[in-house]
């Protein structure tokens, strides 16, 4: 069980986070914070022509929160916003619903990576660590809609 959550993929992403940094001309910017344990994530991304053209994060926190952010940015890069929201929903359901099952092929390939977090369900106090980046992303996408339009126009 333990080796499944602290497996090679998570340890690798934690030590060598992908897409680490800050996009200064981002259309979306959010600071995600888990007050319970102090994990912090600063997420910036650019939505252009309905696609996530670039996405980066910076953060401090446990292996799970940092690896999850790194894997998420990898997965979201280049996706349309609809696809991104679908992935958010899948990820969220994966960690919160008992009866969860993979649904379609698009999601299936996503699973090869994000599926490592499935076992977090067995560590209820740590679910929030895995979902922090995703919730931040979802919130930024929702909240920044008007600003995004401004930037495009």
């Amino acid at each position: 069980m333990l080796s499944e959550i602290y497996g090679d993929l998570i340890l690798d992403h934690c030590r060598n986070p992908r897409n680490y940094g800050d996009i200064h001309n981002a259309t979306h910017r959010i600071c995600g914070h888990n007050p319970l344990c102090g994990d912090k994530i600063e997420l910036t991304f650019i939505v252009k022509d309905n696609h996530i053209e670039n996405i980066k994060f910076k953060g401090k926190g446990c292996a799970i929160s940092q690896a999850s952010a790194s894997i998420m940015t990898n997965e979201l890069l280049g996706k349309t916003t609809e696809e991104a929201i679908l992935l958010f929903n899948v990820f969220h359901e994966m960690l919160t619903r008992e009866d969860f099952s993979e649904k379609n092929i698009f999601v299936d390939s996503f699973f090869k990576k994000a599926g490592v977090f499935l076992n977090i369900k067995n560590f209820p106090t740590r679910v929030k660590c895995a979902t922090l980046a995703w919730h931040s992303f979802n919130l930024a996408l929702k909240e920044n809609k008007p600003q995004q339009n401004d930037n495009i126009n």
Binding site: M1, L2, Y6, C37, D39, G61, C62, A63, I64, F123, T125, R126, C129
Partner: peptide, 13 residues
């Protein structure tokens, strides 16, 4: 550089 939450989760096991 190990985060305390990772330490606590693994010790708990």
């Amino acid at each position: 550089n190990i985060h305390p939450h990772d330490i606590a989760t693994i010790l708990d096991q």
